[in-house]
Computed example of a mutant assay.
Amino acid sequence: MKVIGLTGGIASGKSTVSQYLREKGAAVLDADAIAHALAEPGGSIYCAYRSHFGDGILQSDGSLDRAAIGKIVFADPAEKEWLDKAAHPLIQAEIERQLAVEKQREVPLIVLDVPLLFEAGWDKMTEENCLVDVSEMVQLKRLMQRDGYDEQAARARMAAQMPLEEKRRRADRLIDNNGDLPATLRQVDRLWKEWTHDGFSQ
């Protein structure tokens, strides 16, 4: 079975593609979900953040206040750098653990769903890397609609990520998600057949 890296910029539609691959039978390792689990009280990320930032980033129930952490790291590049250096090895270790488990199972495809696939260097864990690609204008429009940002706030979040042009250069495959959903899923179907050597759609 192949291990495919799936990535995309913010509001690119990566989650939609990931869910479709899961429905087709792929084992999807979702880096965001893994990070969220590790950030629960007692988890490795939770302990690292609490030690670094102090109890001021905890909510009344003891869980992490993600909005408070977001404000800190968005305003201070040094804190953002620390957060990435602290969290990424912990998330990678859990991904590698889950990857080893999935390789023992009879699954047609393993997908690493990672927003920061290239930034974190996790593309080295995969055999091919696929980018869900959109134009900057489509990305901007979808981000504003989805999260309610004004244009300035949306552009700031887009600018905080690796430019899509660089991701396109690094990716082995592109899924064009500028059009409608059926057009996107048809591309995924074609890739599924290539990746799994399955001549029949599921």
Rank of each mutant, 00 (worst) to 15 (best):
E79I: 08
A48M: 10
K85W: 02
K85N: 13
C47A: 15
P77T: 08
D55R: 09
A75E: 05
E40W: 00
L64I: 13
E81Y: 13
Q92S: 04
I72P: 00
E81V: 15
D65M: 11
L64G: 14
L64V: 10
L99T: 03
H52W: 14
V101F: 05
E94G: 09
V73D: 00
D61C: 08
G70Y: 14
G43A: 10
I95F: 00
G62F: 11
I45N: 03
G70L: 07
W82M: 06
F53G: 01
D84M: 13
L83N: 07
K80L: 06
Y49M: 15
P89M: 11
K80P: 01
C47T: 15
E40V: 01
G56E: 01
F74C: 04
P41V: 09
P41C: 12
I57M: 13
L64T: 10
P89N: 15
E79Y: 12
R50W: 03
V73R: 09
I95G: 02
A48H: 14
G62E: 07
E102I: 01
R97M: 02
Y46N: 09
G43Y: 01
G43F: 05
E40T: 10
E79G: 07
L90N: 02
A48T: 02
I91Y: 02
L83G: 07
A100T: 03
R97F: 02
G70P: 13
G62H: 08
C47V: 06
Y46W: 14
F53L: 05
C47R: 12
S60I: 10
A48S: 15
C47I: 11
K80R: 15
I45S: 08
A68E: 14
D76M: 15
G54R: 09
A100W: 01
E81K: 14
E96D: 06
F74Q: 01
A100M: 02
V73S: 02
D76H: 15
A78F: 09
V101E: 05
E94Y: 05
A86Q: 15
R66P: 09
R66N: 14
H88E: 01
E96Q: 12
D61Y: 10
D84K: 15
F53N: 06
I57K: 03
A93M: 08
P89V: 11
A93E: 06
H52M: 14
R66G: 04
H52G: 06
D61I: 12
R50Q: 11
